[in-house]
């Protein structure tokens, strides 16, 4: 009776071993095929095959051996680690729906992602980070068939002034940023509680009132880029089709007045006595001031009704 049991267990182990071996071989084959992936960042060329060790040591714990975002730590994390097999990325310099550039991914690896568990990997060498970018790319075939989207250029930042801040506030109302981000940027707009990401998991809008750094950087340029490209996989849409570069800068300046740290924009807003927008006003609250502003931000349809 005993030996029968042992025999059975030995058989089961053998079958399991053969099964796991054959499935491992399939993934091994696919891996080898994709490990030729490269990443080009400036003068650096990253090679996926050179990043395997670093990926396993530093990334797989959260992003998983297969890059599917199902690493052993993933259950404890919110927001969840990125699933690289889907090739959808938040931080891009390219239009919504398109692949990011290698440089975008390289910057994300170096910078880390604010308000998440993704740290900065700047302690690794530039070459190691470029290799990791190639490794991230090797998880999706989309990189073989598609090119990165056309980069949305960011023109030089103009000088900030009171008119620009007022125009930015009018845009904040007109584009209805407040529907999610709230009238004072406290992430408490009427739609804020209903938001979900592309995996149908709840997600919060950015809270300008409490946070200094944005998801994809901390500079004015980063804010400009986030707003124009949108954050794919989240409810944050792209505005590049409908907002001119000059207007985008106006909005950047206004958003800086909402943040907790001291900014030049905040100082100007204080002098102006700028009040939060009134979402129930039929037209943008700052509209009467807009005609004096250098950029034309008001469409003809808007009525200049004072509050």
């Amino acid at each position: 009776m005993r030996t029968q049991h042992l025999n059975f267990i030995a058989c089961a182990v053998a079958v399991l071993a053969v099964c796991s071996l054959s499935s491992a071989q399939v993934t091994k084959y696919q891996e080898d095929e994709n490990l030729g992936m490269e990443a080009h960042v400036g003068k650096l060329t990253g090679h996926a095959k050179d990043a395997a060790t670093n990926y396993r040591r530093y990334c797989a714990g959260c992003h998983g051996d297969l890059g599917d975002g199902e690493g052993e730590n993933a259950v404890w994390l919110d927001p969840k680690p990125r699933n690289f097999t889907l090739a959808t990325f938040k931080c891009r310099s390219t239009p919504s729906g398109s692949l990011p550039t290698d440089e975008d991914l390289y910057n994300t690896v170096g910078r880390g992602l604010e308000s998440s568990n993704m740290p900065s990997w700047n302690p690794l060498s530039d070459q190691a980070r470029a290799d990791l970018v190639a490794y991230v790319k090797h998880f999706s075939d989309r990189w073989k068939t598609e090119k990165s989207g056309a980069v949305i250029e960011i023109p030089p930042e103009p000088a900030v002034n009171a008119e620009r801040i007022k125009a930015g506030q009018a845009l904040f109302q007109k584009l209805e940023c407040w529907k999610c981000h709230g009238v004072e940027g406290r992430a408490n707009g009427p739609s804020a509680d209903t938001l979900t990401d592309d995996q149908n998991r709840p997600i919060k809008p950015f809270n300008f009132h409490d946070q200094t750094k944005f998801k994809c950087g901390a500079e004015d340029r980063d804010l400009y880029r986030i707003f124009m490209t949108g954050l794919d996989g989240t409810p944050m849409p792209s505005f590049s089709d409908n907002v001119k570069p000059d207007e985008a800068w106006d909005l950047v300046f206004y958003l800086r007045t909402l943040q907790p740290m001291h900014t030049q924009e905040k100082e100007i807003a204080k002098q102006l006595g700028l009040k939060p927008i009134n979402p129930n006003a039929p037209a943008p609250a700052a509209a009467p001031a807009a005609p004096n502003a250098a950029p034309t931000t008001q469409p003809q349809s808007n009525e200049n009704k004072p509050q």
Binding site: P235, S238, D241
Partner: peptide
């Protein structure tokens, strides 16, 4: 304003995009 957000199957041949379309936009 609306944001138009089609969500094809992730990882499939069509890709999600998300664009804002304010009132009066083309």
């Amino acid at each position: 304003s609306h944001n138009i957000h089609p969500m094809p199957k992730p990882g499939g041949p069509n890709h999600e995009w998300n664009k804002s379309q304010p009132s009066g936009a083309p």
